[in-house]
């Protein structure tokens, strides 16, 4: 299960196993919710085993949205599943990765 902890607008969201076309709709709702009223959002992807373009688009959109709202956004613990896709599509540097798995 995904897991969100909140403390004074500082949020940490851990996404579970898959971030793909199959889960994208649900994940989007979670992410939108997590961004609402947040000052900082840390996304933990260490559980992600499956990742595709739908997931990637979502991360990109969240990243842009966070930037627009001046929310500090970071991604932690990205697994190989995630980084493979990001590298393949030449998106290194487009997403705020920190603490690579």
């Amino acid at each position: 299960m995904s897991d969100i902890t909140t403390q004074d607008g500082h949020r940490e969201l851990t996404l579970d196993s898959a971030l793909t076309i199959y889960t994208a709709a649900d994940t989007k709702l979670q992410l939108v919710g997590a961004l609402q009223g947040a000052l900082e959002l840390h996304l933990n992807l260490s559980q992600i085993e499956e990742f595709d373009c739908a997931g990637l688009q979502l991360l990109l959109a969240v990243s842009q949205e966070a930037q627009r709202q001046n929310i500090r956004f970071s991604i932690e613990g990205a697994t190989a599943a995630v980084t493979d896709v990001v590298q393949m599509l030449g998106l290194n540097g487009q997403l705020p990765f920190g603490g690579l798995h």
Binding site: Q57, L58, A61, Q64, E65, R68
Partner: peptide, 8 residues
Amino acid sequence: ALDKLDPE
């Protein structure tokens, strides 16, 4: 933008 994004 995120709110306009069709996740699929």
